[in-house]
């Protein structure tokens, strides 16, 4: 079986935002979710670049949605995590948790 693709830090954040938002995940809702959870502003262009990379890796899929007046009559593009994408996120989480364990500097919430 082919090895699962690796995720960069920002790709992982975008994947998690897509999974958290659920059915209504498109550019605006994904970037809002990232901004609310991380507390820092993101560039929409960066989000779209990450989405393109994730889609090329087969970790997300997209469908074209409806157009609205506040978008200047432009359609939305909805993103969904694929089963492969969910598997990659889960594997990444397990790897990170394993790395986290047994580090005395990270115990107790203080560096």
């Amino acid at each position: 079986m082919a090895p699962l693709p690796a995720l960069s830090n920002f790709e992982l954040i975008v994947m998690l935002a897509i999974i958290r938002v659920g059915d209504d995940s498109y550019g605006v809702s994904i970037s809002n979710e990232i901004e609310e959870t991380t507390g820092s502003e993101v560039l929409l262009g960066s989000v779209y670049d990450a989405l393109a990379r994730l889609e090329s890796k087969g970790l997300i899929s997209s469908v074209i949605g409806e157009a609205t007046p506040e978008r200047g009559g432009r359609a939305k593009r909805h993103f969904h995590a694929t089963p492969k994408g969910i598997r990659v996120v889960r594997d990444t989480q397990q790897s990170l948790v394993k790395l986290w364990k047994g580090i005395p500097q990270l115990k107790g919430g203080e560096a």
């Binding site: 498109y26 550019g27 605006v28 970037s31 809002n32 560039l43 929409l44 262009g45 960066s46 779209y48 074209i64 157009a67 609205t68 506040e70 978008r71 200047g72 432009r74 359609a75 939305k76 593009r77």
Partner: peptide
């Protein structure tokens, strides 16, 4: 790019300023 431009317009109309819009466009 239509989706990106649409998202940018929608987000701008959610209450972001002109400076924010210019910064996003410049970066893109």
């Amino acid at each position: 790019d239509e989706f990106l431009i649409g998202d940018l317009l929608e987000k701008y109309r959610q209450g972001h300023g002109r400076f924010w819009y210019w910064r996003q466009v410049t970066a893109i």
